[in-house]
Simulated assay, not measured.
Amino acid sequence: MMLNKFIYILIISLILVIIIGETNFGNIEITEETALLPETSGAQAVAAEEPVTFAEKLAAGDSVTIVFLGDYVTSPDSLPDGNPNHVALLEKWFESNYPDQATIVNAGMNANTVSHMKQRIGSDVLNHSPDLVVISAGLNDALGGWRIPVEEYAKNYGVMLEEITASGDTEVLIRTPNPTTSVGDNREMMPYMKASEALAAANNVHFFDFYQVMAAEIHSDAISQTALMQNSLYPNTKGQAYLFDKLKVYMATELIGK
């Protein structure tokens, strides 16, 4: 009899504990913060603050690598007088504005078309694990001894862009080349410039139309083209400094400033 009474009291006690517990649980407000474990919440906060884009990495003080891929105008030996070209000037600018953050790799090479550049992607570009690749091509494709058809130019350029951006870790900036001093040659170049712009839009990469910037200032007499050229095709020391200034402004305002 005593045992039955003890069991009865125990059952009643358990029922009361369950009822009280359910009542208190209903008063607890489940918020977005309390729904996460402390470890999970902290991990998400870190992930949200992790720099992703080239601009964010610079702003965060992280190290970045920039590879310049191009032809003679980009190459380190583009000025016979030994003065720094636009890539070397940009390297100094980055060091002044972002000390010890930017590693600059000049992968420009004389007499290169897009086909040549495509063959060098692995060794001269991807091997450096770049955060940004600045590409300039078109002069040799349109006007060099190869005379690459614009369709082949666009196809090879597209393959090159896909290979560079495949990992999702590298941004690309397409820079069009300078206009020449020949009206006829400039007409030959125009389809290549338009193809470059279309490729930039299709691949969602940055685009700086240096050709149009320089052409507009030539036509408005804001600059003297002959004073900026070492011959009909390539910029001289002043022309390289002019290219540096325009590219610097674009990068500072449109690429880094975003």
Rank of each mutant, 00 (worst) to 15 (best):
Glu39Trp: 04
Gln101Arg: 08
Pro76Asp: 08
Ile135Arg: 10
Lys155Phe: 10
Tyr8His: 11
Gly122Lys: 07
Glu91Tyr: 11
Leu173Asn: 10
Ser75Pro: 06
Phe68Leu: 00
Tyr211Lys: 01
Val17Trp: 13
Ile218Met: 11
Val183Trp: 01
Ile18Gln: 10
Thr180Asp: 09
Ile19Phe: 08
Gly122Val: 07
Ser136Leu: 05
Phe25Ala: 14
Thr31Gln: 04
Asp100Glu: 15
Leu69Lys: 03
Ile174Gly: 06
Gly145Ala: 13
Leu37Cys: 09
Thr23Phe: 06
Asn156Gly: 02
Ser75Ile: 04
Val134Gly: 05
Ser196Arg: 05
Leu143Thr: 01
Ala227Met: 00
Asn106Phe: 10
Tyr192Phe: 15
Glu95Cys: 01
Lys118Pro: 00
Val183Gln: 07
Glu197Asn: 07
Val213Lys: 10
Gly21Met: 06
Glu151Cys: 02
Leu89Pro: 00
Ala216Asn: 08
Tyr153Gln: 03
Pro235Lys: 04
Val46Trp: 03
Ala215Val: 05
Leu132Ala: 07
Ala200Leu: 01
Leu89Val: 01
Leu3Gly: 04
Ile7Leu: 15
Thr170Gln: 07
Gly257Lys: 09
Thr74Leu: 03
Val17Leu: 15
Thr65Phe: 02
Ser232Gln: 05
Val46Ile: 11
Phe25Arg: 15
Gly21Ser: 13
Thr53Ala: 10
Asp77Gly: 06
Ile19Pro: 03
